[in-house]
Design a binder for these strands. Structure first.
Lengths: 227, 227
DNA sequence: GTTTGTGAAGTATTTCACAGCC
DNA sequence: GGCTGTGAAATACTTCACAAAC
């Protein structure tokens, strides 16, 4: 058996993770097109916009259905709506933040989340000095309030911005509270059960791989003739 | 011709980008092991630590040389040193920041960069009200000083934390100043020439793909029997 | 004439499995 | 006995190319 999409236990076709990770980019591009008043777009045009091949875009979309019209392309409005629905972006997601140090405060005041439907509705911190403070319109709560807070407010997503040494413990607690999606800002790979998804935001890791290319380039230029 | 690593123009074996992106994770794990006093590690053990298969680790390393001893494993200290050298982490990298709004200030005060050898040595902003201010021990300079600043301070890496509408323009200017590596915090995909590497730090994109799994999970649970 | 949706072909990446060495 | 390094096999992902639809 070769590479056709595997079957999940419940029989639905499994969508490769890379494909899912590209959908938000399509959403973003389509949103821009929509704002500009463009009503129809071909995979060719969309591909130029976000630097992808038209074939890849069409193939990605084909995992979820048939959204285009031959000879014309895709209705921007319709495709955008469908992708938003598929990704679950057609509703508000309540997010809980753990850790209100410098980084946590920056996350709380970052204006990019709420327009996209991600609303930080609670903040927690282990430090008693932080507890009770108002940060970005939210009262910081102690960690022992985590379970109640998550349940009462319907929090489904956790953002973790605590020191590296505490990440695993905090994520364990979030998982115990039935949070199944976590965005981790600390430079550690936490271990989670298979049904929990973690995304790491790690600028240091990004820098450390980029320097490989700078270094390689430098060496190549040293070896090669002067340019 | 099949999948053996391609040859670059200068004849060096081309290393797949995914492989390079994993090396910093190895560095991180080895650093931790080293601090704990572990002197030797097998690919098996390392794999358990960072959730990767031993075969993948061995294969990745084999692109760069032979670092282990059969029957024993890898010397933590030696492998760490080699990987740091390969990635160019055995020296200090000077970084320039563009944009000192809320996000830029958070980046400037983030304590995670300098211990890893990334030193932010200059900050620039287009807003005259920001220019001249001291932020995190650095004087904010106007954008027209970018070229001189980059050259005088030996800046090789740019961090971009400006509003989405200005990202492309700012990145173009950085590229003109011969900066070849850029970390972009704004939610836009900038276009750059092939010799420039960009890494996007984009928590919204991360959230938007994670909700797919939450949504899918919910639907599956609704369809399936109660658990 | 244009562009989608998609099997088939082509690449890339991961994993296997084992000879060779400690 | 244990573990690396690596070709070969397996799997995953991308691109091609064309019939079908407009």
């Amino acid at each position: 058996m070769t590479a056709r999409p595997a079957q999940s236990p419940n029989g639905a076709a499994e969508v490769p993770e890379v494909v899912v990770s590209r959908l938000p980019q399509y959403v973003r591009a389509l949103t821009r097109l929509s704002q500009q008043g463009t009503t129809v777009v071909s995979s060719q045009q969309l591909g130029e916009l976000i630097q992808m091949t038209p074939a890849q875009i069409r193939k990605d979309l084909s995992y979820f259905g048939r959204f285009g019209k031959q000879g014309r392309g895709y209705s921007v409005k319709y495709l955008l709506g469908e992708l938003r629905r598929i990704l679950g972006l057609d509703r508000e997601w309540r997010v809980g933040l753990v850790g209100v140090g410098r980084l946590g405060r920056a996350i709380l005041s970052y204006p990019g989340f709420s327009p996209e439907g991600f609303r930080i509705v609670a903040a927690f911190d282990a430090d008693p000095r932080q507890v009770g403070q108002m940060v970005g319109g939210i009262m910081v709560q102690p960690m022992h309030r985590l379970r109640e807070g998550v349940q009462e407010l319907g929090i489904r997503i956790g953002i973790v911005a605590v020191p590296a040494s505490q990440v695993q413990e905090v994520i364990d607690r979030l998982v115990q509270c039935d949070v199944r999606a976590i965005v981790n800002y600390a430079p550690v790979n936490a271990q989670v059960p298979a049904h929990v998804r973690v995304r790491n935001i790690d600028p240091v890791l990004a820098l450390q791989s980029i320097t490989f290319y700078l270094t390689t380039l430098e060496n190549a230029e040293k070896r090669g003739a002067a340019r």
